[in-house]
């Protein structure tokens, strides 16, 4: 890890390595995720989704600078599009854990869609089943509306429609939820399923049965 500390721009793109080396460099950091090193700034990577319009990038960087974040690098993937047709941008900056939370909150309140904020933001993975008239009720709309919920993103989908697309089919969804927001994500899926008259088989969360 120490050899990569010198190659700052490269290392900074790799959130975990960067966070590790930052913590390792701090004498009183108790854990690599900085859980006890309250005051020590560490490097964070935030993935944002921007609408392809002038001024959007600048608007997204303001909340970082205004809240005490020290910008390190910006990777603007202009050639790529997210599933929602937006442009993904990866921003690296240094901030203390408290500042980091404030920055993410500020980004969200500015209407910037934060897809991923550091590795700990999507800390929880949850698998569930949906069944019913999945295809008649527009599966892609179902998935994008789950995506649109701030608590979770859809990591993986498997569909089984053994009796054709007009009969009852099943899907297995793997969601990545933000830390502590699995329940909120499941509640959002439940609500959507109610609306579309689909059934949800939820996992037993918090029980590693």
């Amino acid at each position: 890890m120490s050899d990569r500390r010198d190659g700052a721009p490269e290392a900074a793109l790799d959130a975990e390595d960067a966070a590790d080396s930052a913590a390792a460099g701090s004498a009183d950091a108790a854990s690599p995720d900085g859980g006890h090193a309250a005051a020590a700034p560490s490097t964070h990577t935030v993935r944002l989704e921007l609408v392809d319009e002038p001024g959007q990038l600048l608007a997204a960087l303001h909340p970082i600078a205004d809240n005490g974040g020290n910008l390190l690098s910006i990777y603007h993937e202009r050639g790529n599009k997210t599933p929602r047709g937006r442009i993904p941008v990866e921003v690296d900056f240094e901030a203390t854990p408290e500042r980091f939370e404030e920055i993410v909150d500020a980004l969200r309140s500015e209407g910037v869609n934060v897809m991923q904020a550091g590795t700990e933001r999507y800390a929880e993975e949850v698998t569930l089943l949906l069944f019913g008239h999945l295809i008649d009720t527009d599966l892609s709309d179902t998935l994008s509306r789950i995506e649109a919920c701030e608590s979770a993103s859809v990591a993986d989908v498997s569909l089984a429609a053994p009796q054709g697309t007009e009969e009852v089919s099943s899907a297995r969804l793997r969601l990545e939820a933000r830390a502590g927001e699995t329940d909120a994500a499941l509640a959002a899926v439940r609500e959507l399923a109610d609306e579309k008259e689909l059934r949800v088989v939820e996992p037993l969360t918090g029980v590693d049965a």
């Binding site: 069944f131 009852v168 089919s169 297995r172």
Partner: peptide, 21 residues
């Protein structure tokens, strides 16, 4: 809620992932 309408396909998808209902 009960199990009356749980389709076989849902159990197969669960099994593929090392789970069951």
């Amino acid at each position: 809620s009960g199990i009356r309408d749980v389709p076989g396909s849902a159990l197969r998808l669960a099994a593929e992932d090392g789970r069951t209902v």
